[in-house]
Design a protein around this nucleic acid. Sequence first.
DNA 1: CATAAAAGTGAGTGATTACTCACTTTTATT
DNA 2: AATAAAAGTGAGTAATCACTCACTTTTATG
Lengths: 215, 215
Amino acid sequence: MDERKWLFDLLNVEEQQLSEKQLNILQAAIEMFAEKGYAATSTSEIAKRAGVAEGTIFRHYKTKKDLLLAIVKPTLFQSVAPFLAKKFVKDVFENEYEHYEQFVRAVFKNRYEFVKTYLPAIRVLWQEMAFHSDIKVQFQTIFINHVYDKFKQIVEHFQQKGELALLPPETIIRLTITTIAGFLATRFLIMPDYPWDDEQEMERTIQFLMNGLKA
Amino acid sequence: MDERKWLFDLLNVEEQQLSEKQLNILQAAIEMFAEKGYAATSTSEIAKRAGVAEGTIFRHYKTKKDLLLAIVKPTLFQSVAPFLAKKFVKDVFENEYEHYEQFVRAVFKNRYEFVKTYLPAIRVLWQEMAFHSDIKVQFQTIFINHVYDKFKQIVEHFQQKGELALLPPETIIRLTITTIAGFLATRFLIMPDYPWDDEQEMERTIQFLMNGLKA
DNA sequence: CATAAAAGTGAGTGATTACTCACTTTTATT
DNA sequence: AATAAAAGTGAGTAATCACTCACTTTTATG
C-alpha cells in the first residue's frame, strides 16, 4: 500500500497517526536538509516539494527548528538503538555471544543495515550536530548514559575472558566504534559511488579490528 | 608582531600581501563558518566581526561563495600536503622510513599538528563539503590524482618487504586513514573536552593499527 | 608633490526569509 | 444530520539577505 513504512519505523510513531500531508512534509524535509543543509533550505521549498501550503508546515511544527528536531531526535535514538534495548547486555553475558568477534559482527551488520536504510535522515543528524549545540549535547548525553556504560561492561567481560588486550576500555570502545563508523562513513558518505563488495570489505574490517585488539 | 602567521601559512599566500582588513575578513569568516555554518552566516555579521564595512568584503570577493572558496581551497590542499611534496614517495623508498610503522608515525604526528593548528578552517572544509558538490569533487580529484597512487606504491613496497598483510592496497589505505582520522575526529571534533593524554592515545592507536595490518 | 589606482565605505535595492492569521475544508463525535 | 475540532490554505508582513554603486580615503609610482 504505502511504501513509507521506513518513515514510520524511523520516527517511531506507529501509534500516532500522521496524515498523508504530514508524511510528505517530513519526507521532503529529510531529503532537502540532507542535500542542501537545514540553513540553506527554505520552508517554502519544503512546502512546494511536499505538495502542501506553507502554512500547513507551521500548523504541525511551531518553528522550522521544531521540524528539524522532529527528524533528528528519533534518528538520534535509532542510531544507538541496539544499546538502548534492556536485555542487550544480558544477551552478551548469557553467552548469546561467546566471543567479542561475534558481538562486533552482530553490531556491525545491524548498523550497516541501519545506515543503508535511513541514510538521508542520518546525514541530517550528523551534519546539523555540528551547528546546533543542543543536538550535540543530547547525543553526548545519550552516549554517556546509555551506550558507554553498557559497552564498557561488555569490553571488560571479554577482557577477563582473555580475548581482548588490556587497554583501557574506553580506548577499545573508541577503536571499535571508529573502525566500524569509518567503514560506514567511507562506504556511504565519502565514496558511495565506488564499486564496493560490502560483504568482503566488512569481513576484512572485522579481521583487522580483531587482530588489532587481541590480547 | 602579528600573531597571524598561521593564516599566511594556511592560505599559502606569503607572496601576495593581504591588508590588515582582508586578514580580518578571512579570520572572521573562518570562525563564523566553523561555528554556525556557511549558509547560516550573513555577510553583514562577518563585516561586523571583522570591523569593516560590508562593501569591503565584496571589493575582494565577488560573491559570498568566493569568500568560502578562498578559505576552503587552500585548506583542502594543506589537508593532503605531505602527499603533494614531490620527493615524498622517494623518501619512503630510499629508506627514510625503514618500516611502515615509521611512515605511519610520521604521517600521524604531522596531521595531528595540522588539525590542532588549523581546526576551524578544517571544520569549514569538512562541513561544507557535504553541501557543495564542487568542493567534494575537487577533494575526490585531488585524492585520486595525488594521494591514492603514491599511497598505493608505499603500501605495495612494504607488502613486498613482508611487513603488511596481503590485503588489497586500497583496503590497507582505507584502514590506515580511517584509523588516524577516527582518532583526530574523536579527539578534536566529537569529544574535544575529554581529558586526553594525546601521546599515549596516539601510541595505542598506532599499536592497534600495526597489529591489525601485520602480515 | 601630482596623479592614478586600489582599498574602503555605507546607504540603498529587490528578492527572499520564517512565520501569522482569517478563512475554508475535512474528519470525528454524538 | 448537526456540531465541533482538526487540518489545510495562501495572501500578507516585517526582517533580513547578498550584493551594488557613487563616493571618500589610502597607497603606490614617477
